[in-house]
Amino acid sequence: MLDIVEFIRALAALAVTLGLIGLGAWALRKYGPDAIGRAIAARQERRLRIVESLALDPTRRLVIVSLDGQERMILLGDGKLLDWIPPPPPASFLASKPAPEPVV
């Protein structure tokens, strides 16, 4: 009977020890030295973001990125920048422009 009680006590001590190690690892990951840098980076507004990505083949990928509100298409793998179509000008810009004179 005494051996079973000691075995259960040792098993409980092992579980508590492993739990404390896991809790310490979680706390270090969440509040470790680089946590301050991650918190600052998360607060900053990002200018560049990936809108969509498409794998063309194993070596090339087509990516649409947005930079300051403008989207550009980039072909990765060959190192080439493809043509991109800028968004149309706003309607207020078109309304303020005088109509072109007809050519006779």
Rank of each mutant, 00 (worst) to 15 (best):
G22N: 10
L94F: 08
P90L: 15
T17W: 07
E6G: 07
I4Y: 11
K80C: 11
P87Y: 00
A55P: 10
G77I: 02
V51S: 07
R49V: 08
S96D: 09
A95M: 02
L54R: 14
I40R: 15
A12D: 10
I50E: 03
L14Y: 05
L14T: 08
V16Y: 00
E101V: 04
L94Q: 13
A99D: 09
I40C: 11
M73Q: 11
Y31S: 06
L56R: 03
L56P: 13
L20F: 05
D57S: 01
L82S: 09
A27Q: 10
I50M: 11
R43I: 10
G69A: 00
G37E: 15
E6R: 07
M1D: 14
S92P: 02
P90T: 09
R61S: 09
L76D: 02
P100A: 04
F93S: 05
S66R: 15
V104Q: 10
S92W: 07
I4L: 07
M1T: 08
A15P: 03
Q70H: 07
I85R: 13
P89E: 11
P89R: 15
A25M: 03
P102H: 02
I21S: 07
A55R: 14
R60W: 02
F93G: 03
R9V: 05
L81K: 13
R60P: 04
R29V: 10
D3L: 10
I50L: 13
E52W: 05
L54G: 02
A39C: 03
A12V: 05
V103I: 08
L67V: 09
A41K: 15
L62W: 03
K97Q: 15
I21R: 04
F7S: 10
L14S: 08
S66F: 00
R9S: 11
I8V: 15
R72G: 00
P87I: 01
A27V: 06
D78E: 14
E52L: 09
M73E: 10
R9C: 02
D78R: 10
I40M: 15
A27F: 09
L75P: 00
L11P: 00
R38K: 15
L11D: 01
I50N: 01
G69P: 00
A12Q: 07
I21D: 05
G32C: 06
L82H: 04
L81A: 07
F7E: 08
W26D: 04
Y31P: 03
L81P: 07
M73I: 15
M1H: 09
R49F: 05
P90N: 12
V51R: 00
E101Y: 08
G37V: 12
R9K: 13
P88G: 05
